[in-house]
Design a protein around this nucleic acid. Sequence first.
DNA 1: ATACGAACTTAACACTGTTAAGTAATTATT
DNA 2: AATAATTACTTAACAGTGTTAAGTTCGTAT
Lengths: 196, 196
Amino acid sequence: MARTSGTNLRREILDTTRRLLIQDGYQNLSMRKIANAIGYSATSIYLYFENKDNLVHALIDEGMEKMQQLLLGIDNLLTDPLKALRELCNRYVAFGLENPEYYEVMFQLHPARMARYPVEKYRKARKNLEVFRDVIEAGQRMSLFREGDALLKATAVWTSLHGLVSLLIAQRVDQQIAPEDLQERVFDQVVAFVGG
Amino acid sequence: MARTSGTNLRREILDTTRRLLIQDGYQNLSMRKIANAIGYSATSIYLYFENKDNLVHALIDEGMEKMQQLLLGIDNLLTDPLKALRELCNRYVAFGLENPEYYEVMFQLHPARMARYPVEKYRKARKNLEVFRDVIEAGQRMSLFREGDALLKATAVWTSLHGLVSLLIAQRVDQQIAPEDLQERVFDQVVAFVGG
DNA sequence: ATACGAACTTAACACTGTTAAGTAATTATT
DNA sequence: AATAATTACTTAACAGTGTTAAGTTCGTAT
C-alpha cells in the first residue's frame, strides 16, 4: 500500500505548484522548490508527472476550467447579450490581472513548452472562446449585433482582451495611461466592433 | 592595446545573440551558447554587458529602433492618415510575425527581467506608440477620425495589434481560424474604433 | 519468513548565470 | 633592454536547474 495516497500527493504537488507560480512566476518555478515546499525530493514529482511541462499543463487545464466557470457564471448570459458581452470582458480581464503569473502560462507559455499539450485539452480551452461566440450569436439572433462569422468575431474580441491583459501584466503600458481608461476604451472598441 | 576592438566584439556579441534569439528563442538562449558562437569564453561577455538581462535589453533597444524606422517609412504618414493607419497595422503585425522570438523579448519579457531597463530606453520604445498617436491626431485634424485622447486611442489600437501578434506567435489561435481573416477583422475593429 | 511491488530516496549527469582569481599580450615607464 | 602597469581575455569555482538511473524502505501477498 502506498505511503500516501497517490492522488493526495499529486493534488498537493499541483496546489503547491500553482501557489508558487502565482507567487514567484514561471521563471522562478523549479522542481526543487516545489519539492522543498511539499517536503519530498524533487524526483518524487516525476512519479506523478512526466516532466515539468506536463505539470504546468495540468495547471493550465485547471485554469481554463476555472475561467470557464467564471465566464459561464454570468447572469442572463444568452438573454441579455449586450450586457453579457461587457461582463465577459470584465471577468476575462479581471482574471488575468488578478492572476498574472498564472495567466502567463495559460496563454503565453512558449509553443516549445506546449508541444505535448494534449489536443483534447486545447479543445477544452477553446470552450472559453465558445462562450464569447455563443453570446455573439445570441445577440445576432436578436439583431442586437451585426451579422458575420461569430467564431471569427469572438476570436477578434479575444485578441483585444488578451492584448490588454498581456501588456498590463508585462507592465509595458505607459504610466501616463490609466489602466481603467485603457480597459474602458478597449471594451468600447470591442463592443462597437461586434455591433452593440 | 586591446586584443580586439571593444566595440567590434561588443557588436559581434549583439549580432550573434540576436541571431540565436531569433533562431532558438529566449528560453534556449544561454551565455555559453553565445560564447561558443563567437569563439570566446562565456565570461568575456561580462566585460561588455553587466549581465544577461542587460545584453537582452540592448537588443530590445535596437529592435525598437528598427520597428520605428519601419513605421516611419510609410509614405504620406500624416497626409493620408486613413491609409497610413492600416499600413501601420500591417507593418507592426508583420514585424512581430516575422521575428516572433525577437518580438517576445521586446514586448513580453517578464517585468522581473525588465527591472533594470533604463527609463530613457522606455522613452525610446514609446516613440513607436507616438507614431500611431500622430497619425490618429492627423486624422482628427482632417475630421477623418473621431475626437478624443489620441494617446489613449493609440494605446488601445496597440493592445489589439499586440494581442493578435502575441496569440499568433504563441500558437493559441484555433486552427479553424485563418490568421489572415483574423488579422483583417482585428484591423477592421481598430479602424472602426478610431473612426475611419 | 520471503518475495514482490510501490513509493519514495540518493547519486549522478549536463546544463545554467555569474563571480573570483589567474594568464597572456600590449603599452608605458625607467 | 628591463620592468611595471594595464587590458582583455582565460580558467576555476559556485549555486542553481531538469532529468534519469540506481538504491532503499515500507507495506502487502504468498
